[in-house]
Amino acid sequence: MPMDLHYRLQCFVRPQPPGFAEGLRLALWQGTGTAATAAAVQQNLERLDAVAAIAASQQVQLLAFPELYLSGYIVTPELARLLAEPVDGPSLQRVAAAARRHGLAIACPYPERVVVAGEERFYDAIALFDDQGVLLRNYRKTHLWGPDEQRCWTPGYLFAEEGEALTVQQVHGCAVGLLNCYEAEFPELSRRLALQGAQMILIPTAADAWALLSTGERTDRPYPDVSRSLIPAHAIHNQCFVAYANRCGVETVDGREMAAYLGNSIVAGPHGDVLVAARPEPTLLIADCLPSDYGPFHPAGTRYLDDRRPELY
């Protein structure tokens, strides 16, 4: 039976979605829910399938969810180890099946369990599946925020066997790069993806108004809202689309309120323009992202990427 979802649908779309290699019809799910239990994971999987069905009805080609969507963001080291799964585990198999069933690519953040360099390790990861359910990329967060994340997770790509950290993947013929939450605040990362040809940088996040830390203390200020500053700035200086997918509302663990989120999901265009931006409420944001809509940002075709002098940096 389909999950009953209450949400706002916010669209910036043309009558028809972009053709292959022309761009992407992107959707971001901004919602709320429970976290850090096996029941929460099952509920989040059911919601993912329901949202994917709605997105497919809108001819969406890539659907993205917030950071650590499957488990919820609020986890302790103990819960991270309990809930983490391999990328080919049962939860991600269900995500791949949803991508196949609904015919759209899905970026699903999750807690990963895997043996790397001879030891079992845990990562704040993002699995990107194409519209046939084929895994295109399993990205592990490289820049961990704060003591809590550093207690829970290993930074990605410390070991050669993990391969290259920053890569782009083809989704519907469009080059997509992945970053994760805090990594939105490092200009070097988005620039690296742009230099590899990224036409879109997708950044799931968990930016909160407040959260309880593993020490039992409450954060003393909201997470910085970079949605209207750094996100459009990255889009301008890299001349690409940048999408930031956050939660909203209160996240609970066994009925206890553990965090409240800013609900500041946004899609920015290559000129720093805002295509769609959410209010702090459950929302499905949909935007047609077409590079051909944008000419040069500067007169005479001047481009930042062409005029760099990296020998000075």
Rank of each mutant, 00 (worst) to 15 (best):
R279H: 09
V267Y: 07
A300H: 08
N264A: 11
R247S: 08
L230F: 11
I203F: 06
R221M: 10
P270L: 05
H271L: 13
I231A: 12
Y223H: 14
L290A: 09
D288W: 00
G263I: 01
F297R: 15
C240D: 03
V267E: 08
A245K: 02
T302Q: 13
L212K: 13
R228H: 07
H237L: 13
Y304T: 14
R303D: 07
P280D: 15
D293P: 03
G301L: 08
S292K: 00
P232K: 00
V226N: 11
A287H: 02
P296N: 07
V250K: 06
Q239N: 10
P299Q: 08
V276Q: 00
G255Q: 10
L230T: 00
N238Q: 08
P232I: 05
T283F: 12
Y223S: 14
L284R: 00
C289S: 07
C248R: 05
E217C: 10
H237S: 15
C248E: 04
E251L: 11
E281K: 01
Y244G: 02
Y304K: 06
W210N: 06
A235G: 00
P204I: 04
F241K: 01
T252P: 01
A211T: 14
G249K: 02
G216T: 06
Y294E: 12
E217G: 15
W210K: 09
S292M: 01
Y294A: 11
P204E: 06
G295P: 10
L213G: 07
I236C: 07
P224Q: 04
L213T: 14
G255C: 14
Y304P: 07
L213W: 01
L212V: 13
S227D: 04
T215K: 04
T219D: 10
L262H: 12
V253E: 13
S265T: 11
Y294G: 13
G263W: 01
F297K: 09
V250L: 12
A243D: 04
V253P: 12
